[in-house]
Amino acid sequence: MSEEIIIAGFGGQGVLSMGKILAYSGIMQDQEVSWMPSYGPEMRGGTANVTVILSDERISSPYLKVFDTAIILNQQSMDKFENTVKPNGILLYDPNGITHHPTRTDIEIYQIEGAKLAAEMGNKKIFNMIVLGAFLKIKPIVKLENVLEGLKKSLSERYHHLIPLNKEAITKGMNHIKKKSKEKTSMPS
């Protein structure tokens, strides 16, 4: 198993930490992982993205041109990364703030209203966990219990009381994902 993912959005949306939790979850199930962030001037108020790879074997390049899955959280990232999804790959996005929706027909496209759901839950910071839940619904590459273990590892102890809220957000994401592209394969249940 190998999954090559790009997560892209605004700095401050929790893009990098979502990637980190995913990577930690991979470690919890004995996988090789890499987390390669964009860094530098584009982080300040602009876009942030991270390439996360989970694999059963040694990972060669941590830096990639094409991805199995793109998780896209703003318009700039949509413009930049829609075409980097491999044919038959997955594009998951939050429609909030998206003016030009993805148009490709050779990939599977899903929507998750992460920002809206997070606002409903009364905590905007939980946004990235809702999106992560949606992704794990489509591609259950890591088990929920390992995500929670990963959270425990990546959060300092004073935030451990927030783990149940994170779990709730992940479940919410799993339950609210919508498929946008034409039905090619049946949605995993």
Binding site: E32, V33, S34, W35, M36, P37, Y39, I59, P62, Y63
Partner: peptide, 10 residues
């Protein structure tokens, strides 16, 4: 280099 320094791995 910046890539190896900034990336996270196990």
């Amino acid at each position: 280099d910046g890539l190896i320094g900034q990336m996270m791995e196990k």
